[in-house]
Protein backbone atom coordinates (compact mmCIF):
# COMPACT_ATOMS: atom_id res chain seq x y z
CA UNK A 1 0.00 0.00 0.00
CA UNK A 2 1.19 3.48 -0.75
CA UNK A 3 -1.03 5.13 1.77
CA UNK A 4 1.77 6.37 3.98
CA UNK A 5 3.02 8.46 1.09
CA UNK A 6 -0.42 9.80 0.48
CA UNK A 7 -0.99 10.93 4.00
CA UNK A 8 2.26 12.85 4.11
CA UNK A 9 0.55 15.71 2.39
CA UNK A 10 -2.20 15.81 4.97
CA UNK A 11 -1.70 18.14 7.84
CA UNK A 12 -0.34 16.32 10.86
CA UNK A 13 -0.99 18.40 13.92
CA UNK A 14 -0.94 16.63 17.27
CA UNK A 15 -4.68 17.19 17.68
CA UNK A 16 -5.27 15.60 14.35
CA UNK A 17 -3.23 12.54 15.16
CA UNK A 18 -5.10 12.21 18.42
CA UNK A 19 -8.46 12.39 16.69
CA UNK A 20 -7.32 9.80 14.18
CA UNK A 21 -6.36 7.49 17.03
CA UNK A 22 -9.74 7.94 18.65
CA UNK A 23 -11.59 7.25 15.45
CA UNK A 24 -9.41 4.25 14.77
CA UNK A 25 -10.39 2.89 18.15
CA UNK A 26 -14.07 3.45 17.43
CA UNK A 27 -13.86 1.73 14.08
CA UNK A 28 -12.08 -1.22 15.57
CA UNK A 29 -14.90 -1.48 18.04
CA UNK A 30 -17.50 -1.36 15.27
CA UNK A 31 -15.55 -3.91 13.30
CA UNK A 32 -15.24 -6.03 16.39
CA UNK A 33 -11.58 -6.58 15.57
CA UNK A 34 -9.32 -5.42 18.32
CA UNK A 35 -5.78 -4.39 17.61
CA UNK A 36 -5.05 -7.08 15.12
CA UNK A 37 -3.23 -4.84 12.77
CA UNK A 38 -3.06 -1.37 14.16
CA UNK A 39 -1.53 0.16 11.09
CA UNK A 40 -4.37 -0.69 8.79
CA UNK A 41 -6.73 2.22 9.46
CA UNK A 42 -5.26 5.42 8.05
CA UNK A 43 -6.75 8.67 6.85
CA UNK A 44 -6.99 7.20 3.41
CA UNK A 45 -8.97 4.17 4.50
CA UNK A 46 -12.39 4.07 2.93
CA UNK A 47 -15.33 3.05 5.10
CA UNK A 48 -17.09 1.12 2.41
CA UNK A 49 -14.42 -0.22 0.09
CA UNK A 50 -11.66 -0.89 2.62
CA UNK A 51 -13.51 -1.66 5.82
CA UNK A 52 -16.69 -3.05 4.33
CA UNK A 53 -18.82 -0.79 6.51
CA UNK A 54 -22.31 0.16 5.43
CA UNK A 55 -24.31 3.24 6.27
CA UNK A 56 -25.92 1.48 9.23
CA UNK A 57 -22.48 1.17 10.82
CA UNK A 58 -22.14 4.94 10.75
CA UNK A 59 -24.95 5.06 13.28
CA UNK A 60 -22.70 3.40 15.82
CA UNK A 61 -19.80 5.66 14.90
CA UNK A 62 -22.03 8.72 15.26
CA UNK A 63 -23.08 7.63 18.73
CA UNK A 64 -19.47 7.09 19.80
CA UNK A 65 -18.37 10.43 18.38
CA UNK A 66 -20.98 12.44 20.21
CA UNK A 67 -20.32 10.47 23.35
CA UNK A 68 -16.61 11.25 23.16
CA UNK A 69 -16.71 14.85 21.87
CA UNK A 70 -20.08 16.14 22.90
CA UNK A 71 -23.11 17.30 21.04
CA UNK A 72 -21.36 19.71 18.73
CA UNK A 73 -19.92 16.73 16.88
CA UNK A 74 -23.09 15.86 15.02
CA UNK A 75 -22.20 13.34 12.35
CA UNK A 76 -25.83 13.23 11.21
CA UNK A 77 -25.77 16.90 10.31
CA UNK A 78 -22.44 16.47 8.56
CA UNK A 79 -23.61 13.50 6.51
CA UNK A 80 -26.75 15.37 5.51
CA UNK A 81 -24.51 17.71 3.52
CA UNK A 82 -23.11 14.84 1.43
CA UNK A 83 -24.79 13.07 -1.41
CA UNK A 84 -25.12 9.32 -1.45
CA UNK A 85 -22.01 8.69 -3.54
CA UNK A 86 -19.98 10.80 -1.19
CA UNK A 87 -21.23 8.89 1.81
CA UNK A 88 -20.28 5.66 0.11
CA UNK A 89 -16.81 7.01 -0.71
CA UNK A 90 -16.32 8.35 2.81
CA UNK A 91 -12.78 8.10 4.13
CA UNK A 92 -11.42 8.23 7.64
CA UNK A 93 -9.51 11.44 6.80
CA UNK A 94 -12.73 13.26 6.04
CA UNK A 95 -14.14 12.18 9.36
CA UNK A 96 -11.00 13.46 11.09
CA UNK A 97 -11.43 16.79 9.29
CA UNK A 98 -14.97 16.96 10.44
CA UNK A 99 -14.16 16.24 14.08
CA UNK A 100 -11.23 18.69 14.09
CA UNK A 101 -13.44 21.39 12.56
CA UNK A 102 -16.37 20.70 14.84
CA UNK A 103 -14.25 20.84 18.00
CA UNK A 104 -12.12 23.82 16.90
CA UNK A 105 -14.40 26.40 18.47
CA UNK A 106 -14.12 24.85 21.91
Amino acid sequence: MTISQVTETAQQSPARAEVLDEIRGMLEKVLDQYGLDDTEITEDTSFHDDLGLESIDLVAVAAMLSERYGEQVNLAAFLAELDLDQVIALRVGLLVDFVVDATAGR
Binding site: L58, A62, S66, A76, A77, A80
Partner: peptide, 8 residues
Protein backbone atom coordinates in the same frame (compact mmCIF):
# COMPACT_ATOMS: atom_id res chain seq x y z
CA UNK B 1 -30.80 15.30 12.53
CA UNK B 2 -30.60 18.08 15.06
CA UNK B 3 -30.65 15.29 17.63
CA UNK B 4 -27.72 13.60 15.85
CA UNK B 5 -29.75 10.86 14.22
CA UNK B 6 -28.44 10.00 10.78
CA UNK B 7 -31.21 10.32 8.21
CA UNK B 8 -31.48 9.89 4.51
Amino acid sequence: RAKAVICQ
